[in-house]
């Protein structure tokens, strides 16, 4: 093996990954054309590399639902995702049937607005989202923890996503 072959051998891995610059790539290719020994080395490298790649690409068997059962309670407890938030997603063009929320809301409003004893104890700030729709993205409705003020979050599609 010549010193050129040694140099090329060191570059074969990056050549295989297409990570060489144009000049180096041409140099390797020119050498491979003229050197059967290095050509053989490259073929062996590619074969073992393909085998390793095939092994690494095999999907391991994991019970993902079971894993999620462990993940979900943990992330509920952590601060990033607030347990006390109620959030539900509305697909574009659909309206939220608010019957359940309205029932709870009506009861809350009754106590907040109509009963003086309760009225004095809490701020009258309850508002409710009866319906919501978006023609350009998804909409999420959630509530703040303290005053249960509704937050309607519009998730617009990016211009990239709008392209067919």
């Amino acid at each position: 093996m010549t010193s050129i072959c040694e140099d090329i051998a060191y570059k074969l891995s990056a050549y295989l990954d297409n990570e060489l610059g144009e000049a180096e790539k041409n140099r390797v290719e020119a050498h491979l054309e003229n050197c059967p020994s290095c050509r053989g080395s490259f073929r062996e490298l590619k074969k073992s590399s393909d085998l390793v790649s095939a092994r690494l690409s095999v999907q391991p068997s994991v019970d993902f639902d079971k894993a999620w059962q462990h993940i979900e309670p943990e992330i509920r407890r952590r601060p990033a995702i607030r347990r006390y938030l109620r959030a539900f997603i509305v697909k574009p063009g659909f309206w939220i049937p608010a019957s359940a929320a309205a029932t709870v809301g009506a009861a809350a409003l009754f106590f907040a607005l109509c009963l003086p004893v309760y009225k004095s104890q809490r701020p009258v700030s309850l508002s409710h989202v009866e319906s919501v729709s978006s023609k350009s993205g998804s909409v999420m409705v959630l509530h703040t923890a303290k005053t249960s003020q509704p937050i309607i979050w519009i998730m617009e599609k990016s211009p990239k996503e709008k392209r067919p």
């Binding site: 309850l126 989202v129 009866e130 729709s133 978006s134 023609k135 350009s136 003020q149 309607i152």
Partner: peptide, 24 residues
């Protein structure tokens, strides 16, 4: 947005009540 309706909501708002709309 540019004359196209992108979002609509109906709020049942109590006196002095508020709501927040965000995202764009």
């Amino acid at each position: 947005k540019n004359h196209t309706e992108i979002f609509a909501t109906t709020l049942l708002m109590a006196d002095n009540g508020s709501a927040i709309i965000g995202g764009p």
